[in-house]
Each structure stands twice: as C-alpha cells, then as structure tokens.
Nucleic acid binder design. Structure first.
Lengths: 197, 197
DNA sequence: AAAAAAATTGAACAGTGTTCAATTTTATTC
DNA sequence: GAATAAAATTGAACACTGTTCAATTTTTTT
C-alpha cells in the first residue's frame, strides 16, 4: 500500500468487505481496520462515505459494462438482447452484495444530484444494448425508440433490485431469471406489435 | 392520546413526520418528541423501529388498495388496467415519502423473512388488478397467466422505486407516467402477441 | 388506604458518519 | 547530513442512530 494508490487500495478492500460480509458491513471504522489505517485517512481520500461508495459503484458499473461487452452479438438482434439480459442477470446474481450497494445508493441519494461521471457510467452500460436494440426497432422513430430503450433499461434495472433481496420469496417459487426473461421478451414483442398499428 | 390507541397515535404521528420531512426524519427520538412521550414508550408498543415502519407500511398498502378499489372498472379490461396504472402512479407520486419508506424497507429487509400479514397486504393490492388481467388473458394457461401477472406487478412495483427519486433526472426529460404507461402497454401487447404463437 | 400490577421514563451502551488539533512522516532547503 | 517546511496520518471527540432496563410514576386491584 504505497501512498499513490491508497484510493485504489481502499476501494479494493471495501469491495472485499461488501462481497464477503454484505453492504451493511461497509462502515468507515471497519474499512479503516481492514485496510490498516485510521478513519482519518479514509476521509483524506474521500470527502465522505457516500463518495467512497460512489467510487465503489463506479467500479461495479465498469465491471458490468465489461461483462456485457465481452458477450458476442448474435446475428439475430433479438437473441443478442436476450444474451445481454442473460449476462446482466448473471452479473447481478453473481454480485448480489455489490449490486445491492449500488442500487441502495441510488435510492438513498434521493435528494442529491448524481455527478456526471456517475451518470456517464450508467449510460455506458446502456450503450452496450443500444446497437442490438436499434437493429430490432430500426423502423420506429428515433424519439420513440430512445424512450422505449430507456424504459427497457429502467425496468430491468429496477427489477434487479428485487433480485438481490428475498422479497420475491413471498410470491411462491418464482425463478428470478424467468421473471427477467418474460419481462424482456413480452416487452420487445409488445413494442413490435404496437409499432404495426 | 388515551392508552388503548397509543399504537394508532404513534403510527399517525410517524406518518405525519414522513410526509412532511421525508423518510429519514423518522427516528425513535424524533417520533417520541413529536408524540409527547419517551423512546421507551415506543419500544413498549413496538419491538423495534423496523416493526414500527412495517406497521406504517401496512397502512400505506391499505391506503393504496383502497385507492385502487375505488376506481371504476371499464367495460374494456385493457382500459381498466390502464386506469389502475394511472391510480398507482398517482398514488406513488402523491405519497413519495411514504412510498420511499415502504420500498426502502423492502430492500433493507434483505435477509429477514417478511411476516405473513405483510405479504398478505402486498398480495391484496395485486388482487385488485387480477380480474381485469384475467379477463384480458383468459386464453392463457393459469400457470403462465399467474407468472405474467406477477412479472407485471414486480416491474411496476420496482420501477415505482425510481419514481420517488431523482435518478431519472439524469436521463433527460422523461415523463414518469409515460414510462409506466409504455411499460404496461408494451408488456400487455407483448403477452398478447406471444400467446398467438 | 394499601398493595400489586402495569406503564413510562430517560440515562446509558454500542453502534453510525464526520471533524480537527496534535502527531508523525515525508519532502525540501541550506 | 541537519534543519526546516510541507504533507499525511492519527484517534479522541461530537452529534447522531437503535435499543435496553433499572428506577420511577401511574393505574388497577384488593
């Protein structure tokens, strides 16, 4: 832990804490102890814990983007979208605690404005889906297509918050991936059907 | 505040605090002060603050159910569903702080099991939609119809969490009701289209 | 009026995030 | 290399959480 990469070190340690012990475990003191420094050092690197969590989330978003980008597009754009969905659900379920940290932050930061760099990272994740989506709905007007795309992402993003909790357990044996698959394909089929009218 | 309705009184005061000052404002001490009692009294009525918040949410769910039940079904089941959607979005946007308290609780209660009475209240909200939904998709097998219905509710419910925050502000001028309307109708149209195959 | 039961209190405990004067470490200058 | 200046680190302290529980007050019963 040399001084020029304390930030990276803290973020890595923080990620480890979240992955191993859950998002609640990420507190200033526990992070300090795990990192072998004092709370003051953390506050020297980050204005506050919210900023730290944002830095953590930025890495999570980057990881998700890379995870999606690595998937090969199919010749069929529909299949490509399903592949992205698959990758997305896999990522969320495989990184439950980190994703909970991220979504929870979005909800908690209710009154504040999120900084540009953060919104940018979100957008970049959506951009991965964009070509395939545009290919499927090439005939729709750009304005509507943009909205349709946003709604698709928002619904998958928000539903993903439920995937990290046992809220769904109260609704019988619902398979989490099945939920997302149905949501995606019904939505896509619906857009296709609606545009013909 | 007589002793047999302290619970109701506390819940009412708590709701007032949340409505006027946001969900964060609801703490044991502030609730005690606003109610003219000590923290101990609150803990005499509720095992912990989580249970208090649950009692608060139960009332919110009941209010939502009543709000939806009061809406008149249209002869066209599609229109009925859109009417429910309208009522739902109106309720969420008109009770942002209370809805935030509710959704946030669902997310925070990640590891615990929610009690039956609470799940029941959730289910009763969904039940309102059920007849109209079944009317539209009478030809689908019950098993699939049940899943389709669940996914519809889950997506609307989860998207509603975003309606209580400014997360959407980063995505340009997206109208919140438009998002939900598109989501509902594309989804419904999609189910209709898919069942024909 | 006395005794028993029940409800209320609020100081105290273990946690949060956050601050900042004092200390230690590092870099610079002579 | 020693003395000085700058920068980074520390951790006790502050204000806030949820929660507990012995002591007090109130209510009910006898």
């Amino acid at each position: 832990m040399t001084k020029d990469n304390i930030r990276e070190y803290l973020i890595a340690k923080g990620r480890q804490l979240v992955v191993e012990n859950g998002a609640d475990f990420l507190t200033a003191r526990k992070l300090a102890e795990a990192s072998g420094c004092s709370v003051g050092t953390i506050y020297n690197q980050f204005a506050n814990m919210d900023n730290f969590i944002m830095a953590e989330n930025l890495q999570t978003l980057e990881a998700l983007k890379n995870h999606l980008t690595a998937l090969l597009p199919d010749s069929n754009a529909y299949k490509t979208l399903n592949r992205y969905l698959d990758g997305f659900v896999r990522f969320v379920l495989g990184n439950k605690n980190l994703w909970f940290l991220l979504y929870n932050f979005h909800l908690q930061a209710s009154m504040r404005k999120l900084p540009r760099v953060y919104l940018r990272a979100m957008i970049e994740v959506i951009e991965v889906w964009k070509p395939a989506f545009e290919s499927v709905f090439a005939s729709i007007r750009p304005r509507e297509r943009r909205l349709s795309m946003q709604v698709l992402w928002l619904s998958l993003f928000s539903v993903s918050s439920l995937l990290t909790t046992p809220v769904l357990d109260g609704m019988g044996n619902v398979n989490k991936k099945t939920i997302c698959k149905l949501l995606l394909n019904a939505y896509l089929a619906g857009l296709t059907a609606l545009k013909k009218d």
